[in-house]
Design a protein around this nucleic acid. Sequence first.
DNA 1: AATGAATGAGCTTTCATTCAT
DNA 2: GATGAATGAAAGCTCATTCAT
Lengths: 204, 204, 204, 204
Amino acid sequence: MVTSESDGPRRRDAAATRQALLEAASSRFTRLGYDRTTLRDVAADVGVNLALIKRYFDSKEGLFKAALASTPRFLGRNEEFPHDRAGLAEALSHQLSAGAWPEFGEHPVLMLLRDSGDERVDTLRRKALAEFTRQILEASGGGPAVEDDERLLRAELLVALGVGVAVVRSAVGLQPLRDATAGQLAAPLREIVDALLAPPADGR
Amino acid sequence: MVTSESDGPRRRDAAATRQALLEAASSRFTRLGYDRTTLRDVAADVGVNLALIKRYFDSKEGLFKAALASTPRFLGRNEEFPHDRAGLAEALSHQLSAGAWPEFGEHPVLMLLRDSGDERVDTLRRKALAEFTRQILEASGGGPAVEDDERLLRAELLVALGVGVAVVRSAVGLQPLRDATAGQLAAPLREIVDALLAPPADGR
Amino acid sequence: MVTSESDGPRRRDAAATRQALLEAASSRFTRLGYDRTTLRDVAADVGVNLALIKRYFDSKEGLFKAALASTPRFLGRNEEFPHDRAGLAEALSHQLSAGAWPEFGEHPVLMLLRDSGDERVDTLRRKALAEFTRQILEASGGGPAVEDDERLLRAELLVALGVGVAVVRSAVGLQPLRDATAGQLAAPLREIVDALLAPPADGR
Amino acid sequence: MVTSESDGPRRRDAAATRQALLEAASSRFTRLGYDRTTLRDVAADVGVNLALIKRYFDSKEGLFKAALASTPRFLGRNEEFPHDRAGLAEALSHQLSAGAWPEFGEHPVLMLLRDSGDERVDTLRRKALAEFTRQILEASGGGPAVEDDERLLRAELLVALGVGVAVVRSAVGLQPLRDATAGQLAAPLREIVDALLAPPADGR
DNA sequence: AATGAATGAGCTTTCATTCAT
DNA sequence: GATGAATGAAAGCTCATTCAT
């Protein structure tokens, strides 16, 4: 519930107010979804008037689009990008561990699954996930030549796994997955990454 | 919008009307979630009056619970239950292929992720997913003795993968995953199942 | 809440069912008023189907009218009619004491104040209260000749007092009035009756 | 239906709009009771949108509470408080005469009898009537020492009389009580007040 | 005579949105 | 740039009533 009013809403600072609204909205959209996020609550989080949302983002839809656009385009989490399958698995295990993303409350990929009902944002969301897939392929080596359809499918299964972990944790809190640490996730994820993306030993 | 009025609304047949309402509701809850499913739409799908929902299910919450309870408790899809990892992988590849579950419009596991806001249904949903996990463990052999915490976590990762595939397909329609056939999914899933649940060759 | 299913609803006995419905309705109308009395509840009290109310009374309005018509046309409460002011005061003190009318739950005069919104029942209710006024005048002696307008007004004030006691007890439960016994009410009522209806000693 | 749009709905004046809503609601609650007062009608009386009621009073219950709280805490009707039995009787005769309280449409004590179904407002209503009783005792002299239980009961009977007059006039319009003037009510009320509250000449 | 399935209208409540200031 | 008053539409729910059986 607390995200952005850390140091108080700066009055008469348009950019800061806009940013604070965006962060509050991102948090609510991520945690609660589009429908259960009310503009009144977002404005109240920041401590400003409701009409400012219209001023800065025009509508709830506009706010949602802006929040979507501000979602991290991950893999690597501020550090350098992973260069091999081991690095990829480790990055994933950190990203999918419990308590990562404290500033969002939940894994930010959830935002990409939230549906506002507007057909036009679908493309936006699809592109973001596709970019994620591309990053996985690049990190797992293999070179662009081998990126045939099956390899793409395998990368997408890895994306789906990440999404599934975030969703299951958020929606039902299944234990022990819910509180799994990066250390606990490391081994299984490494094996999955290898199983999915290691180059075939034989001429499959 | 069209799901269940297959053979027209039967007049004066309570059981049939109730069932038709349940199916229409299941479809909408699965596809659209709790908030975007309106009772008016559900009633319109079946072609009956809104008040019948109150009659048969008492409230929207009651309808949701009934829909939740009628969700298939899968693995094996009407056929016999899988007995080994190969069977498990194959069952999954069918269950997660495009176009399975035509009567729901989407994979029914999505229903288990829908949130009505009622605390008491949370337990229901969690139990259903936990049961799914248990089935995976049982099918993958290993006997109850080995069902330590790590094995449980690995089974849950497989559940998360299934959930993720359903979610990604439903929410963003990532290709080629979106239209993947059971044949295309078979090999990667088999490798993942083995990687996650095969007994360790050495004393890991 | 329990009024009439004392010896069970007799099946296939139209008159008895009708009577039971009437009593249940009277109780609810008296206690809860017109709006908060639902036909479903009345039918449930008796244990019969809702549609029987339509059969016997045609509509909620019809049921209300029938209940109104069945309201006791009091003074004297089954015993002989009071013949003088002392008898009148005593009859009133019994009628207005706590716990009288156990079969109605509240004083039945409340029914005469319930409003269904139908203009046509107004006459009915007015006539019933006017009849009560007439009875008071008759009991208090004085003969018909003296029934000038002021005497009528005084009798109506006594009616209003009775109504007020019933209403205050039912609506707000003011103590000690709420639990007042006939003994406690006797003296004040006698003095009021005398004050209002005793023939003037001097040529007032 | 006509109560408060005296000088037209003032635009953009929150306090005035709130007050207008409150008056319209008071009138309807007083005349029609809780159930038959619809928020749509109240808003229409004032000429504003329904949602403003939520803004200012939060809910129908909140509006009712506010209306209850704004009910005059009478005796004396803006003038000085009555100091003896004669003054009390006169105050009552004015207060209970036809056409008093034109701004409410009916005697405002009726509001105190309206039931919203909420347990917590019951106390509010009871307290208001109890306060009325206390005022009667104070006005009728006698000093606090004599305020034994019987005296309290007698004061409450006077309250009940007032309530009864208001109720009978409103609900059934019994003549000549319905159109009684203060002049017509003066004598009988004086005699009742004396009969009830005059100090006993002998050792009663 | 009696039942239960089905309907239509209305109510409160909740939001996103728009309009003046 | 910012506020708060006011609106419109839609949702869940409730009830009296009607229709077949």
